[in-house]
Design a protein around this nucleic acid. Structure first.
Lengths: 347, 347
DNA sequence: GGCAGAAATGTTACCGATAACATTCCTCTT
DNA sequence: AAGAGGAATGTTATCGGTAACATTTCTGCC
C-alpha cells in the first residue's frame, strides 16, 4: 500500500488535464483514440479508480443503502440481507450492513452513523421495535431528514416510513388451522419474548386464532422461548412439566425453526414420539427443515421477497412516501404433524 | 429527506464560522460555553453529523474495512463476519461486506470497487482460491497498492498478503483419529468439490491421515458432496449404492455439518441406525449440532478467532507485512460416533 | 489558404469538512 | 489605564473528482 493515487497523479503522468482523465474513466466519446489509450495505460499501471468519497462529495449520491438488523448469525436476517444485497447490486447500489447488539434498539449512535455515511436509504429489519415508540419515531424523523427509510415490520405498526409487512396473521393462522384440521384441539405456542413487538404480535395473533376456532386459550399453552434452540428446549420442559399429562397440548407452534429444533429434542428426551405423540410446526422454512427427524413443517414468510420489495421502494422513494406492502406467508407441509387420525386418539 | 444539511448551514444558522462548528462537534475545549450551547442547539435541531466522505477526503482515512466472502447465507462465513464486525467496531472501524456470486473468483470489478471505496483493509474468506493463481496474485498486487490485504486460507497457500490459517490438518486428523480410536477401519470422506483449493486440501489431508494409520484409502471412500445438505444425501447414496455391503465404511467424515445433515437423513432412509451402524463427524460445530439425532460430533475451526486475528493484523499492518497465524482446530465430541464397542462387531 | 465549426483538451469553481494560521476579544497585572 | 498574553473565533487552502465553460486544435470546404 504505497499510498493513494489521485486523478492528478494520473493526469501528470499521462501529460493531460484531470478533465481528460475523467473523460477516459467515464467513457466520454470526445477523446481522441490515441489520448484515450495513453491515459488508460497510466490508469492500468497505477490501478487507479476514482475515490468514492470524492465522487460523493461532488455528485451528491453515495449509491449506498444500509441494512440494519440485530445479528447476521440469525438465518432469517441472513436471507433478508442476501436478497437486499443482490437487488441493490442489480441497481448499481452497494449495501452496508449494521448490527445492533443484544436486540438493542435504534441508538443515538446508530442514527448518527447512518447520517454520517450519507447512505441513500436505510432498511430496518427485526426486533428494533423493542425501542420505545417515541424514541423510535424521533429517530426515524431525524433519519428521514437525510434519507428514505423502510422497515420490515408487523402489519399495524405505526411507523412514519415505508413499511414492508411480513404476514404475521397468516404466520399464526396457517399452522393453527393446519393443526386444527388434523384434529388437534389443544395447541400451544412457544417462542420469542413477549416483551418485543414482533413476538407479542405473533402471540396475540395466535390467541385470536385459537378463539376464532373455539379452542382453549389456556395461558399455560403460551410460553416464552427466546429465539434459539436452547430456548425451545427449556420452554417445552417448563410447559409440560407444569401441566397434568392429560392437559398436555397435542400440537406446538414454535416461534421459528430453531426454537422448534430445541423443542423436538426435548420432546424426544421426554420419551415422546414425533409426530404420533406431538405435532410441531416451525417458522421460516430454513434449510434444515427437511433434515430434522421428522422433517419439520414450517411457515415461509418469504423474507427474500420482502427484502427485494424494500430495496425497490427505497430506490424510487420520494419525500414523504409511506406506502405499505405485504407478501403472504405460505405453509410448507412436511411430516412433523403426521396424519389426522393418529392424533384423534389423544383427545 | 429534505436534503443535505452541511456545516455551512449550521454555521450560518448559529451565527458562527464553520471552524467553530467543527470545534463543537469534535469537542474542542477552546469554545465558550455559551457558544457551544448555541451551536449544539442548531446541530440537534438539524440532526447534523459531518459527512464521512468529506472527512475522508480531508483526513485520509475511511476507518472502514472490507470482508469478502462467497455468501452470507453460509453459517461458517456468517460467524466470521460477525466476529470481524465487532472486532472492527471495538476499534472504531466499520465493515463493508462483499459477496462473490457463485463461488466466483476475485473479479476485476471487485478489485475496482474495493479501491474505489478506499477501505483501509480487506479480508478475503473462503473459496476465492478458485481464482486462477496468477490472476489472484495480480489482483492482490493491485489491492496492496492501496490497502493491506489479509486472507483466511489453508496453510501452505502461497499468497502475498497477511495469511490467517484455518487448521485443516487437524480438521482431517482429529475426526479420523477419533474414529480410528473407536475401532473403525473403513472411513470415508464426503464433501466439497475437489476442484477448489479448500476442499482438495481437506481431501489430501484426509488421505494422508488414513495412510499414516494404515487404513484403506480406497478412492470409493472419497466422494464429492458439494457444500449443502442435498449434496450430503446424494454423496451417501452414490457411495453406498456403488459398494458391496461388506465393503461399506463404518465411519464418515463430512466436509461440514450441513453436508452431514444430509448424510444422516440418507443413512436413516437406507435403514441404518446411527450411531450403531454408522458413525459420522461433521465440521464447523454449528448451532444445530447438538440437535441432530444423534447429536453430531464436529470439528470446530474457531472461525471467530480467525476473524478477530485477521482484523487485528489488518489494523496494525505496515507495508509489506506478510505474517501468517494459525489457530488449532478442536474436536467437539457428541454422540454421533457412539462408543467403541458397538462398532467392533461390524469389522 | 483561410475560415467556420466541430472536436479535443484545458481551466476552474465547487462539493463538505478540517486545521493551520490569522485575527479579535477578554482578562489580568502592574 | 495600558498592554501582555491567553482565550475565542474567523479565514482560507486543501483533500479528489466533476462539469460547466473557455480555449485550443483539427477538419473540411470554398
Amino acid at each position: 500500500m504505497s499510498g493513494k493515487v489521485t486523478i492528478y497523479d494520473i493526469a501528470r503522468e499521462a501529460g493531460v488535464s484531470t478533465a481528460t482523465v475523467t473523460r477516459v474513466v467515464r467513457g466520454d466519446a470526445n477523446v481522441r483514440a490515441s489520448t484515450r489509450e495513453k491515459v488508460q495505460r497510466v490508469i492500468d499501471a497505477y490501478a487507479y479508480t476514482p475515490s468514492a468519497s470524492a465522487q460523493h462529495l461532488e455528485g451528491g449520491r453515495t449509491k449506498t443503502l444500509a441494512v440494519v438488523l440485530t445479528t447476521v448469525t440469525n438465518l432469517y436476517f441472513t436471507r433478508i440481507y442476501d436478497a437486499a444485497y443482490w437487488e441493490a447490486e442489480a441497481n448499481g447500489y452497494s449495501v452496508r450492513l449494521f448490527q445492533t447488539k443484544d436486540n438493542a434498539p435504534i441508538s443515538r449512535e446508530l442514527v448518527d452513523t447512518l447520517i454520517r455515511q450519507r447512505v441513500d436509504g436505510v432498511l430496518f429489519v427485526g426486533s428494533i421495535w423493542s425501542t420505545d415508540r417515541r424514541d423510535l419515531n424521533e429517530a426515524l424523523e431525524k433519519l428521514r431528514l437525510y434519507m428514505p427509510v423502510a422497515a420490515i415490520c408487523p402489519p399495524g405498526v405505526q411507523l412514519n416510513c415505508i413499511r414492508i409487512h411480513s404476514d404475521l396473521v397468516n404466520c399464526s393462522r396457517l399452522p393453527v388451522r393446519h393443526l386444527h384440521a388434523l384434529g388437534h384441539r389443544r395447541i400451544a405456542f412457544i417462542g420469542g419474548s413477549m416483551q418485543t413487538k414482533d413476538s407479542s404480535k405473533r402471540g396475540e395473533n395466535f390467541l385470536e386464532e385459537l378463539r376464532a376456532l373455539d379452542l382453549p386459550d389456556d395461558p399455560a399453552y403460551h410460553v416464552d422461548a427466546g429465539y434459539d434452540a436452547e430456548g425451545g428446549e427449556r420452554a417445552v420442559l417448563r410447559m409440560l412439566s407444569g401441566l397434568d399429562r392429560r392437559r398436555w397440548p397435542t400440537g406446538i407452534v414454535a416461534f421459528n425453526d430453531t426454537v422448534a429444533l430445541g423443542a423436538i429434542k426435548q420432546l424426544k428426551q421426554m420419551g415422546l414420539h414425533l409426530p404420533e405423540d406431538m405435532a410441531i410446526i416451525g417458522c421460516d422454512n430454513q434449510f434444515f427443515c427437511p433434515y430434522t427427524d421428522p422433517p419439520l413443517t414450517s411457515v415461509d414468510l418469504h423474507p427474500e421477497e420482502l427484502a427485494t420489495s424494500a430495496v425497490r421502494e427505497l430506490l424510487v422513494a420520494r419525500e414523504g412516501t409511506a406506502i405499505s406492502i405485504m407478501r403472504e406467508s405460505t405453509l410448507i407441509v412436511r411430516e412433523s404433524c403426521g396424519a389426522a387420525l393418529s392424533y384423534r386418539k389423544l383427545d
